[in-house]
Nucleic acid binder design. Structure first.
Lengths: 241, 241
DNA sequence: CGACACCTTGAAGAGGTTCAAGAAATGTGG
DNA sequence: CCACATTTCTTGAACCTCTTCAAGGTGTCG
């Protein structure tokens, strides 16, 4: 069954959404706010394991995550796969599809999720009129570029332990920004997906977790991770080799 | 001496620029074209080794390369450095600076260069009126995101030989698109910069070049590289391990 | 409860790094 | 324009990190 069948026209109210400051411009007049709500044409539920969009599909919309957790992954012609990111509530997906009007990666829900569908033509039309929205779209894209550069740094110059530490700190920080504990996290992805994202094999991911546990830096029970010593994690990253 | 002193107000004519189809939207009316030319407020020359902009500088403009060759590099707080890309004529730099109104990377000229300075406020104003420009800006940013995902794939899952092959094919293809030979290239960057970009040490870069030479795939004389067997290079990339 | 996916750990091996030295090219000052 | 200093590049040898291969453990879901 196509996940699209879950799509539904709804009366949305970004102004009431508690994710507003995460995915919307902040300083808007009430009038502009109302107009921007028009952009969110519908919501769509995606069941765990299903894709929100796939490589090759026609690009029509950006998606803001209301709830749930996604991975985006990018495949080379010869079947290699790279997880390019993990996305959580308030984050925007689909930006890569604009250039060729086709999505170039897959977005898979790692837990049941709901997204706001934002028709891109509509975004463009409206951001010609509401400069706050225009600026916001530019910033979102620019932020994605900066984020990717950070991942390139990680992949290009860090060793396994530093990569995993960076990853955990980043997840914790994002969860914290959403009101969750800054030290207690539940990984939504498998070790293999973490490995793909961090450029290491599943066994290395597992061993590196074990090492962090041995060193008393984190506690790990399956996908439940508790950070015992944030400073030690930070030091792992900053004291390069 | 600050390279900025080289800046000059000029009457530009994108419509006559032979790089037009590389950095400008294609299907514009003559009237719109004229308006877009207003965006290019000045040109700026950058001497080899100098920076066009640096991490931390206030972001004001995007830059289109008219001539010359750049690298962009990104440094972590602890001094690690990652080359995030090499840019040539017709390509746009500075997109990462939009989100925080500060540049987050350094752009260094690897040979004497000249860029068109495009004030970003001006771009935003104009792209609210000329939808072709708006769409173009979106596409440029989206392309950068897609490109970065490709680099992540390279860094995350390829071995040294595959990385170098991918790098050479990509350079050759971009140079070819600019009217140069698809098989003869002059590297503007050092082995170290290539290594930083590809996530490998300078010695590995050198050895990998030597291997490609041994195998009769390329000819290397310092920074002059001739691709003798493009298919073999492509196969190195696609026949993963 | 059994099948399946996911995770961990050990041992051997390979690819890449590090250290070291020298060669080649490039730049600089007299 | 040459001599010298400096940067860049190459190659060898030892080492180390991560991968590969293999096996067994743990958790989950019908």
């Amino acid at each position: 069954m196509d996940a699209r069948t879950h799509a539904s026209k709804i009366k949305v109210a970004c102004s009431n959404c508690n994710l507003r400051e995460l995915c919307m411009p902040v300083d808007l007049s009430a009038a502009d706010m109302t107009r921007i709500e028009e952009v969110v044409s519908s919501r769509r539920k995606v069941t765990r394991g299903d894709s929100l969009f796939q490589n090759g599909e026609t690009f029509k919309a950006l998606y803001a995550i209301r709830s749930g957790f996604f991975k985006t992954s990018f495949a080379s012609p010869d079947g290699r796969e790279q997880v390019t990111g993990f996305q959580m509530s308030g984050e925007i997906m689909g930006l890569d599809g604009i250039v060729n009007e086709r999505h170039t990666c897959d977005a898979i829900a790692l837990e049941d999720a709901e997204v706001c569908v934002m028709n891109f033509e509509h975004i463009e039309t409206l951001s010609r009129e509401v400069s706050g929205l225009q600026r916001h779209v530019h910033k979102i894209m620019s932020r994605e570029i900066s984020r990717d550069h950070g991942v390139m740094l990680l992949l290009g110059s860090m060793r396994a332990e530093e990569r995993l530490a960076t990853f955990l700190l980043n997840l914790a920080q994002r969860l914290h920004a959403r009101g969750f504990s800054p030290s207690e996290l539940v990984l939504r992805m498998t070790r293999e997906e973490i490995g793909s994202y961090l450029g290491m094999k599943i066994e290395t991911v597992s061993r590196t977790f074990s090492k962090l546990v041995e060193d008393g830096i984190v506690e790990v029970k399956q996908r439940h991770v508790r950070i015992l010593n944030t400073d030690a994690l930070k030091q792992l990253v900053s004291v390069n080799s």
